[in-house]
Design a protein around this nucleic acid. Structure first.
Lengths: 148, 148
DNA sequence: ACTAAATTGACATCATACATGTCAATATGA
DNA sequence: TCATATTGACATGTATGATGTCAATTTAGT
């Protein structure tokens, strides 16, 4: 088992890791009425306080049209509300309502607790190393795949 | 930035890593007529020499009905063929044809070259550490998310 | 100020990657 | 032998988006 084989395995473990992570998130979302994707929208609003739909789309790196649908859902559930945008009359600023803020804060906090309990069982240096490798890998895959 | 934050970031990088990896694979598949998923089927047949549809499904951890569709595609394109199964008359063994074998071997070899060139730019120990962390993480996420 | 180009929300349509349910045929095991 | 399980085939459903288009509006160039 050489270096390249290990890297090959690491790369293809990204899928099971993602699936396991999303499954864990879904479990934490159970009963909240949120989906993984609407949760992502609320999380961005929590971090940025407020944002327009196109800004959220840029953040999530998915198309604005799809973000619009998700945002409209959160508006309907009173988790977010519209605010006047001084820079653009049609493109309102989307912000969390108190209800939405309480919900996403609760969800994120429970997730962070879970992650903290996982982190406690792992070596901090190893986590840091893994993070560096994965970051570098994403970078290299994006650029290198292009030229071949 | 503490340990748990790093772990949180690492976990959520699994998605961009997977996307980058699949994009790279798709590029390597360009012109071959394969998709990421039919490629996965052929890869398993290459590793196991031959397998039934339910066996492939177990390997890929997706439903046999969907694997059946993909396998039927590869049969139609003459990349795989049916062999008698001494253990079961209805459930034939699926094997690579010469054409299929040549195709998947070529694809996999080019992928391995790319991965090898990436590995050369990374520290072998770090790759190993990252692999260990990710494996452990998947494990812990699966079990721990259940109990809470 | 006027006009061309860009942005945005809304809506419709399409694609991919699966899951789920069902049926009939066939195996398998008690 | 007879109940049960397995398999292929097919139909339908769902989640997560992409793409295209329109009208309204905004912005920028002149």
């Amino acid at each position: 088992m050489n270096e390249a084989d290990n890297l090959y395995r690491l790369i293809w473990m990204s899928r099971p890791l993602m699936q396991a992570a999303e499954a864990a998130v879904e479990q934490g979302l159970d009963g909240s009425g949120l989906t993984v994707r609407t949760r992502a929208v609320l999380e961005i609003l929590l971090a940025h306080d407020a944002a327009t739909v196109p800004e959220i789309a840029q953040n999530l790196e998915i198309k604005r049209q799809y973000v619009q649908v998700m945002v409209n859902e959160t508006l309907a559930e009173n988790l977010t509300c519209k605010r006047d945008n001084p820079r653009h009359k049609r493109s309102t600023i989307i912000a969390l309502t108190d209800k939405g803020r309480a919900l996403i804060e609760d969800v994120v906090q429970r997730e962070k607790s879970l992650v903290a309990s996982l982190a406690a069982e792992l070596d901090a240096g190893d986590i840091n190393t893994a993070l560096g490798i994965v970051e570098t890998l994403i970078d290299k895959l994006k650029t290198k795949a292009g030229d071949g």
